[in-house]
Simulated assay, not measured.
Amino acid sequence: MNRRPPLRLLAAAFVVAALAAAGAVAQHFRLFERGWFAVAQWRQGAEWQARALWLPDYDVVVEGRPIPGVENVSALTYDPDRKTLFTVTNQNGELIELSLDGAILRRIALAGFGDTEAVEYIRRGTYVISDERRQRLFEVRVDDATRSLDAAASRHLSLAIGRSGNLGFEGLAWDPDGQRLFVAKEKPVRIYEIRGFPEATADFAVDVADDPKRDRGLFVRDVSSLQYDRRTGHLLALSDESRLVVELDTRGRPISTLSLSRGHHGLKESVPQAEGVALDEAGTLYLVSEPNLFYVFRKRRVPAGAAAAPAAAMPYSRTA
Results as ranks from 00 to 15, higher is better:
R8F: 12
A11L: 11
F14H: 07
V16F: 08
A17W: 00
L19V: 10
A24E: 04
Q27F: 04
A40G: 08
A40S: 10
A46Y: 03
W48G: 00
Q49S: 14
L53V: 15
W54Y: 14
Y58L: 00
P66L: 05
I67W: 01
G69N: 12
V70W: 03
V73G: 03
Y78N: 11
L85N: 12
Q91T: 10
I104T: 13
L105Y: 00
R106D: 03
I108E: 04
A109N: 00
A111I: 08
A111R: 04
G112L: 09
E117D: 13
V119L: 07
V119R: 05
I122W: 03
I122D: 08
Y127E: 12
S130A: 15
D131H: 07
E132N: 08
R136Y: 03
D143G: 04
D143A: 01
R147P: 09
A151M: 12
R155M: 06
H156I: 06
H156D: 01
S158L: 11
I161D: 05
I161C: 01
S164F: 08
N166R: 07
L167H: 12
L167K: 14
F169E: 00
G171I: 10
A173V: 01
D175G: 12
P176K: 06
P176I: 05
R180D: 00
R180G: 02
F182I: 07
K185D: 05
E186T: 01
F197P: 04
P198W: 07
A200T: 12
A202M: 02
A202N: 07
D203A: 13
F204A: 13
F204S: 14
V206A: 10
V206E: 01
D207L: 15
A209M: 11
P212N: 02
P212W: 09
K213W: 01
R214D: 07
D215A: 10
F219N: 06
R221W: 00
V223G: 08
S225P: 05
S225A: 15
Y228E: 07
A237D: 13
S239Q: 12
R243Q: 15
V245M: 05
R251E: 14
G252P: 02
G252W: 08
T257L: 14
G263R: 08
P272N: 06
P272Q: 12
G276Q: 13
A282C: 01
Y286N: 09
Y286F: 15
P291W: 10
N292F: 06
F294Y: 15
V296K: 15
V296M: 11
R300Q: 14
V302D: 10
A307H: 06
A309E: 13
Y316M: 04
A320T: 04
